[in-house]
Design a binder for these strands. Structure first.
Length: 470
RNA sequence: GGCCCCAUGGUCAAGUGGUCAAGACACCAGCCUUUCAAGCUGGAGACCCGGGUUCAAUCCCCGGUGGGGUCACCA
């Protein structure tokens, strides 16, 4: 039997990274098993902004490089792939359970939030084959109170008492199916063989098992993935370290790196190599090797992986990331970004930065000052300009820079070294001072490159300003 | 609170009834260097607690503690 899995998000308008990882694991499993990856939209409830919300999902998957074999846009033989378009199926399934005496229509008011909705009078009304479900009637299961047991691929053997669920609702009185009901109907009709989802669904599983039993359907295998927690152990959210997939995109992370990182969170390869691009993940992925316990999101490790992927990228693509960060951070405008001279400058700085530039947003840290008209020198760095010798050397260097006819790295180096030497100084203190004067920072690329990129005019100007300022 | 689940360094994460308990990120030191990063070398750092079972438990069993999930006419 060929494997069929599905990713079934509800269109809420954003995609949580936890959901992204669920999609990833489904996808990896499907590709590894040479199976089918289905995208199904669970939109029984929210009808608003469905189109925009759908786009968030499809864009997210595409960005990560996860293609789906069946679902919106590609279609397939088991459609439609929107639950909102499958109401007839839910209806007939509900009808069928009622006539078989496994469920019943109910018009009672059930007090919200009562535990285990208790059976009501409606349960005992006889229905024959001619019974027709009407609107205004909710449908509830006849819970025969048993123990449901299943072997979860990652969580192991699990067992529940079904009494706690009561005669839970299958179809709401407005005619829409509840999550558990729609899920079972769809998963069965779509031939889903493995349900891989977040472990917040484990307690839904026994309810679904009850339904499979009622329908006399063979249930699929289940694999419940552990949660992703924020860096502090709290639930991953905006406040606790960026929850939305788009946040990571905007921070300038590469999808390849995020995918690699996410795969490593909750799963480990057999070998020691952790740099695993998508195709390598497909080869190595095993559901059986997924951990049971939740893991915390570690930004440092993501950044590290991102840096590794960055280093494989041509400068042009890294420069592009840099450009987006600059625009997003308001350092330059869209218009300026489109200017070929600016582009050139960004590329040159990107190149000079080399592997210091580890993810998009970090470009500010090391590269921002190249694009600002004024730079601030923090007070704690001003002691670089205290020594009279250094001041003289800087002054001299500025003068020589001004007169330099050819602005290239070796001339720049020569100016700096000779200015220092003429003052009886080693090059280092002068170099450090110039770095601070030009960038307001003590770290960055090779100083001679830095000077080169800052440019003749601005270099002279910034050195003079630094000397006057304190 | 009921039900279900989980527990190896700061984080991710291998692993075993007898091991010097892998590896990665982060951290610290040295080398390199004009700084930083990278690279190389070295270092510190873990089996939640208490009972059993056993010649021997990080590993098996029970209890505790801690953490998480879930308890809807949401998905």
């Amino acid at each position: 039997m060929t494997v069929r899995v599905r990713f079934a998000p509800s269109p809420t308008g954003y995609m949580h990274v936890g959901n992204a990882r669920t999609a990833l694991f489904n996808w990896l499993f499907a590709r590894k098993q040479d199976g089918t990856f289905i995208l199904r939209i669970e939109d029984t409830d929210q009808q608003r902004h469905i189109e925009a919300s759908l786009k968030v999902i499809t864009d997210g998957l595409q960005w990560l490089g996860l293609d789906w074999d069946e679902g919106p846009e590609v279609e397939g033989d088991y459609g439609p792939y929107f639950q909102s378009q499958r109401t007839e199926h839910y209806f007939t399934h509900a009808q069928c359970l009622i006539t078989e005496g496994k469920a019943y229509p109910c018009t009672c008011e059930i007090a919200p939030q009562t535990e285990a909705p208790a059976p009501c009078e409606c349960r005992n009304q006889p229905r024959d084959e001619s019974f027709a479900l009407e609107s205004g009637m909710a449908v509830r299961i006849i819970n025969d109170k048993r123990r449901e047991h299943f072997d979860d691929i990652v969580q192991g053997s699990l067992s529940f008492d079904t009494e706690q669920f009561g005669d839970f609702i299958l179809v709401k009185s407005d005619g829409t199916p509840t999550y558990n009901f729609a899920n079972v109907v769809d998963d069965h009709m779509m031939g889903v063989t493995h349900v891989i989802r977040g472990d917040d669904h484990v307690s839904n599983t026994p309810r679904q098992l009850m339904l499979y039993r009622a329908f006399e359907y063979e249930p699929p295998s289940f694999a419940h993935l552990p949660q992703i927690l924020g860096p502090d152990g709290a639930r991953l959210s905006k406040r606790h370290g960026a929850a939305a997939l788009t946040d990571y995109r905007e921070m300038g992370f590469l999808p390849e790196a995020l995918v690699n990182y996410l795969a490593l969170l909750g799963w480990a390869p057999e070998g020691e190599q952790e740099f695993l691009p998508l195709d390598e993940l497909v080869k190595q992925f095993e559901l059986e090797n997924v951990r049971k316990s939740a893991g915390r999101f570690d930004f440092d490790k993501l950044i590290h992986l991102n840096s590794m992927y960055m280093q494989q990228l041509p400068v042009s693509e890294r420069a592009d990331l840099a450009k987006r960060a600059l625009v997003r951070g308001g350092v330059i405008t869209e218009n300026e970004a489109a200017n070929p001279k600016t582009q050139e400058q960004i590329t040159a700085v990107t190149e000079a930065l080399g592997n210091r530039f580890r993810y998009g947003e970090q470009f500010f840290e090391f590269g921002g000052h190249f694009f600002k008209t004024h730079i601030e020198i923090p007070d704690e760095l001003k002691d670089h300009f205290e020594s009279e010798d250094v001041r003289s050397a800087l002054y001299e260097a500025a003068k020589r820079f001004e007169q330099l006819s050819k602005w290239n790295e070796s001339n720049i180096e020569q100016v700096i070294r000779s200015s220092a030497k003429d003052q009886g100084l080693k090059a280092a203190p002068v170099i450090h001072a110039i770095r601070v004067a030009l960038s307001g920072d003590t770290v960055g690329p090779s100083l001679f490159q830095l000077v080169l990129l800052v440019g003749q005019e601005r270099t002279v100007q910034r050195i003079k300003r630094a000397l006057n300022r304190d």
